[in-house]
Design a protein around this nucleic acid. Sequence first.
DNA 1: GACTGTGAAGCCATTCACAGCT
DNA 2: AGCTGTGAATGGCTTCACAGTC
Lengths: 210, 210
Amino acid sequence: MKTFKIPEASIIRLSVYSRYLYQLDQKGVITISSGEIAEGVGVSPAQVRKDLAYFGEFGTRGVGYNVRDLHGHIMKILGLNHKWPIVIVGAGNLGSALTMYKGFLQRGFEIKGIFDSDPEKIGTEVGGYPVQPLENITKVVRDHMVEIGVITVPAPYAQETATMLVEAGVNAILNFAPRVINVPPHIEVRNVDLAVSLEILTFNLVMKRD
Amino acid sequence: MKTFKIPEASIIRLSVYSRYLYQLDQKGVITISSGEIAEGVGVSPAQVRKDLAYFGEFGTRGVGYNVRDLHGHIMKILGLNHKWPIVIVGAGNLGSALTMYKGFLQRGFEIKGIFDSDPEKIGTEVGGYPVQPLENITKVVRDHMVEIGVITVPAPYAQETATMLVEAGVNAILNFAPRVINVPPHIEVRNVDLAVSLEILTFNLVMKRD
DNA sequence: GACTGTGAAGCCATTCACAGCT
DNA sequence: AGCTGTGAATGGCTTCACAGTC
């Protein structure tokens, strides 16, 4: 396969395009141009074409793209043509919210277990899933071939949770704890810090005042 | 102040440095070098120095940086030397989780109101805050000089919510709805799509297989 | 005529390497 | 000697502009 280096920014945009295309498909739109996609998601037409060009030729010159086909192609590129089992560690507010969040299921992510260290929480239900003790992680990960673990524990426990997930056998981690975690190089990690996003806004607001 | 164009990536890193420095300060560390910061957060030493150089000279050649001072400087750069009142629109799972999330408060964000359109939810309490009807947004935003609004409504309502927030008078929006929103150019917007982060992971996992 | 696909150009961010302090 | 601060070089992403196709 063409394992050229693809900008991460392109992947983020592809994910955005896919949602927009799905929306259009639902509305019954059949064909769309790169310019219209660009307009709809706020990027340049050339950018849209370039992002797609990394993966093939999906359009027809003089015409544009078939909405449903292109959506299908992008979903396949993102690996979303099949389900992805995931586990969530940390049954606090954020972990619970993610467990109940419909958006994940819609995109093909299936929660196979939610875990917490707090004995008070274990056994309680979150979004229909029983909160399990950390000891169960390895078994659940193996039984359901889980490749992705989500960390929503408090920052001080982020590292040990990451280590635990790696030992259990996941290949990728989505870390919501505001702390850098160290994992072996073959493990994919993405950090989502909710406060960071707010801080970019405050920075921009402060900058503008001058 | 040198208002040259500063890469957004630098701002994200500054936010990360600030957390790391706070951690070090708590542990009693007095001085640190760019190399040690780099090591701690997973970037290059030159990157750390360059990021800081956009805003001034905070270190001492031959020595390094004073941990507490540098933390203070970065917090000021990010505009976090004072409190930021915010409002949250959408009292679903995510909105509730954010309202109860301690991380925001710790960084100086104070929730001045949470709003929802669902009559069933209005009046109920979320993290000690009563859920209010959308009609109250304008009053709350004006009374508390709120500049930042957070959108956690379902995707189809994202645009109207954004419009409402802008009319109420906010200058910045953090949008968690997986939909592109259109606002006047003077309004700062950041989109956080939780599924996008997972999809970058799945893309990378799929890529690796070949 | 319209729109895609793409090499080339332009632009921006990161890394390098060293001068400048302490 | 050690580490910062920074101009210069590098590398990578985005935009441009046009050839290719329907």
